[in-house]
Design a protein around this nucleic acid. Structure first.
Length: 272
DNA sequence: GAAGACCTGCTA
DNA sequence: TAGCAGGTCTTC
């Protein structure tokens, strides 16, 4: 579930809660695969007693930079979240100095915590983060033009752009009025520029709204404070199949594209 | 490209 | 009860 806006929201809230600067007093690992390939014992031993200097984000990865020089890279995958309160699906719990306890919750157990010497070991596989200046219109135009690949899976590919997931990819394509099955190298210069702006736009709005949650269930996104975020109210495509397109009133269609559910307007999202 | 694997919970 | 879910990795 968590895509760039959700991870950014969580990182900001962890900073606001004062997690930076605290020492990790103890680590409790309830699902050992969370920290693989390390063992729970090895992970705990290397992390205990260090201070979390800084919390940051690149794409969908969250980073805890430790004073030991190591970095914890956290990927929330489909259902990871953080809370200051204990919960049913806590897979890893950090007791921090001055009485703060950080609960990492993950119903589906897909999320991973990687302890590395250098974050580049992992981040080098990513394209530019979609909300940084490194993700430029020229970079996007060149990448799009050099590949002969459907545009939906193309913009979901983290090695090309880091941060988009299924919700914001559908939103960006709807916003740019581009059919998800279009081939990347068929996009005109204008379409390319429009899509570039749409990607930045939907992600910025998502951050401003503190993320998108589709419902109240325990597999749905929650921020650190247990809130759902307000972006659902402005979603135009994702999860709206069978409902009228806000632009042209055609009923939105859902189709599986590259193994991902994809909702789009069959009329105003241009085929060519 | 596609399909299966990793997991649990919700919805139809 | 089957099918689906915001993600990514491995193996055809």
């Amino acid at each position: 579930m968590p895509e760039l806006p959700e991870v950014e929201t969580i990182a900001r809230q962890l900073r606001a809660r004062g997690v930076e600067g605290r020492e990790i007093l103890s680590v409790k690992i309830n699902w050992a695969r969370t920290v693989e390939p390390l063992s729970a014992a090895s992970f705990s031993k290397q992390v205990r007693g260090t201070i979390i200097d800084e919390i940051s984000r690149v794409g969908k990865w969250m980073m805890f930079s430790l004073c030991s020089g190591k970095t914890i890279l956290i990927h929330l995958r489909m259902a990871g979240s953080f809370s200051m309160e204990p919960g049913q699906h806590d897979r890893l719990v950090l007791k921090l100095s001055d009485g703060l306890t950080l609960h990492y919750r993950d119903t589906r157990k897909f999320g991973r915590w990687k302890l590395v010497d250098d974050p580049q070991e992992i981040l080098c596989k990513l394209g530019p983060d979609a909300l940084t200046r490194n993700f430029t219109q020229k970079y996007f135009r060149d990448a799009v033009g050099n590949r002969h690949r459907m545009i939906k899976p193309f913009i979901l590919d983290q090695s090309i752009i880091a941060g988009l997931g299924n919700i914001y990819a559908d939103e960006a394509l709807w916003e740019a009025m581009i059919h998800p099955e279009r081939l990347s190298d068929s996009l005109s210069a204008v379409e390319c520029a429009t899509l570039f702006k749409a990607i930045k736009h939907v992600l910025k709005v998502g951050v401003k709204n503190r993320g998108t949650s589709l419902g109240e269930g325990k597999t749905n996104y929650r921020d650190v404070e247990g809130e759902t975020g307000e972006n659902r109210a402005v979603v135009k495509a994702y999860g709206r199949s069978g409902q009228p397109c806000i632009r042209c009133e055609t009923l939105l269609e859902k189709r599986t594209i590259a193994q991902r559910g994809t909702t789009f307007c069959p009329v105003c999202q241009s085929h060519r």
